[in-house]
Amino acid sequence: MSDQLVFWGLAGFITLSSVAVVTVRNPVTAAVALVINLFLLAGVYAFQGADFVAAIQIIVYTGAIVVLFLFVIMILNLDPEHLRSPRPRIWEHLVLGVVIAGFAYIGYRFLDSLDVGKVASNRLPDNTYDVAMILFSNYLWPFEIVSILILLAIVGSVAIAKKPK
């Protein structure tokens, strides 16, 4: 019962905030909606027992990535003209309808085809230790490679965003 309550609460707000991210006009509002969305998503992770992922999700996403968005928004300080969207054209409505219908259909077919049945997924026991073990043994190379990727991204973004002399 309490599980249901928690899940539906989280899911409802996640859905709302997702919609908000893509529909609101003000980028700051969108960023805040995104923060809420990601924060609640971390809640879903924790709810499933993935504590460590949840913590990382909050630290990295809300603590760094979205802050970066906010920074950029504040630095750009867009004028209202910029924020106005043009009136959607007919073909856009059409495409929207097709996309939603397509997703609904694909999702339905996919979920329908899952032969797992309606098994309740249990919460995982405390698994930080195991995650660490897997990460630093089986996935050591990907881990190192990703760290190099991050380094490249740092250098790249500094190089791109630097003021030209």
Binding site: A64, L68, V72, G156, S157
Partner: peptide, 12 residues
């Protein structure tokens, strides 16, 4: 994170 960093740098 990488994508956001580089993407935002490009936006700027």
């Amino acid at each position: 994170a990488c994508e956001a960093a580089v993407g935002l740098a490009m936006v700027i």
